[in-house]
Design a protein around this nucleic acid. Structure first.
Lengths: 200, 200
DNA sequence: TATTTTACCTAACACCGTTAGCAAAATTAA
DNA sequence: TTAATTTTGCTAACGGTGTTAGGTAAAATA
């Protein structure tokens, strides 16, 4: 009964090729210009085949979003591991998040493209809870070590994520020119403020 | 030659009705669902008439964006006037900005819908420079009164706007339920951190 | 070999933004 | 008042979108 296996394997290959083609198109023309027909042409199948693998276009973007968070999480873990103190961990993760956003603009724009992940969407992206967990841990440590141990860590996680995202999205417009140094300063400014805000 | 006047007036009326219809549609179905054809039907004109008044669909959204910033600016001015100290001014404006966003979600989403206003877009929205000016003034005052008078006020404006926008956009997803109090805390947290960050 | 399942495609539906080209109405000139 | 001209607004189309119904040919099963 190796036939069923072969078929499954082939189906998985087509699915993968859809995602790869979609990703190439996003890289080349931006996620706004992604279309089912372009994907179909790229994978050399007819349009309806795509709907055998994904319910709709949004599901494809959702899958790319998941991939983005996977990649981001991996880099956050690496950043955390390389850091010593709790404080350094938070700083390293903020920096890693920032770096990820600018080194993977296409991913970041897909991940937050339709606006911030909506309530329904959040539950579909399991990677998001990993993400939250990663950042929550050092925040809890920092709170425990600070002078206000009853501070709500979720509140701080919320703040951390929100502000960082805000900084990035507003800086992402200027893009191009010699703003890199200014941006670095904004980031450092933020981290310093955030950490001392918890310790105080 | 009152004829030309009447024609001008009529043309202006049609233009206004386009914007009003567009706004109603945005309120009812969200800006993503806005379409030229729906506007045309609402104003009881054929589709091409709309292109006599606006170059394209984006121009209509741009006009709504301008209206949004006008309204926001008005509320920021009011907030600033009602506040005493420089510090209170900044807090009041942050709160007013926040309040505007949540009381006018449709506007806020149009204003930041296509992502943050891009470099080209910024120049088309004169209201944006008014906005910047409004926030810049108290920031400058606070810097002057603080212990680091050489701090770049534009950097701080940047930070202020970015973080506030981030807080709002991430909080805008949760929307609905009993998160209002938590949100208030996040905002207060932000303001406190921002102000002390400048003074220190 | 006959039958059933699977894989896949063509063609369509209902939209979208945008524009070319034309008919009718309103204005101006004779 | 009639003729010429401008203005106004329309129909219809082009090329695109996401999505799906329905049919055909190939492959697997009996």
């Amino acid at each position: 009964m190796g036939i069923a296996e072969r078929k499954k394997r082939h189906k998985a290959e087509v699915r993968t090729s859809i995602l790869e083609a979609a990703w190439q198109l996003v890289l080349q023309e931006g996620w706004q210009a992604l279309s089912i027909r372009k994907i179909a042409e790229a994978i050399e199948y007819s349009v309806p085949v795509i709907y055998d693998h994904f319910a709709n276009k949004e599901a494809i973007l959702l899958e790319l979003t998941k991939q983005g968070f996977q990649k981001l999480n991996a880099q956050l873990i690496k950043a955390q591991e390389g850091a010593g103190s709790t404080e350094e961990k938070i700083a390293a993760m903020a920096y890693a998040y920032w770096k990820f956003a600018f080194e993977n603009k296409a991913y970041y724009q897909v991940m937050y493209g339709l606006g911030i992940p909506s309530c329904e969407t959040v539950n579909q992206i399991s990677e998001l809870s990993t993400f939250s967990g990663l950042i929550l841990a050092p925040i809890k440590d920092l709170i425990a070590a600070g002078s206000n141990p009853e501070t709500d860590p979720f509140l701080k996680l919320h703040t951390f994520w929100s502000m960082l995202h805000g900084l990035i999205s507003i800086n992402m417009m200027g893009s191009g020119e010699g703003k890199e140094e200014l941006n670095q300063m904004v980031l450092q400014d933020f981290i310093r403020g955030f950490v001392t805000g918890i310790k105080a």
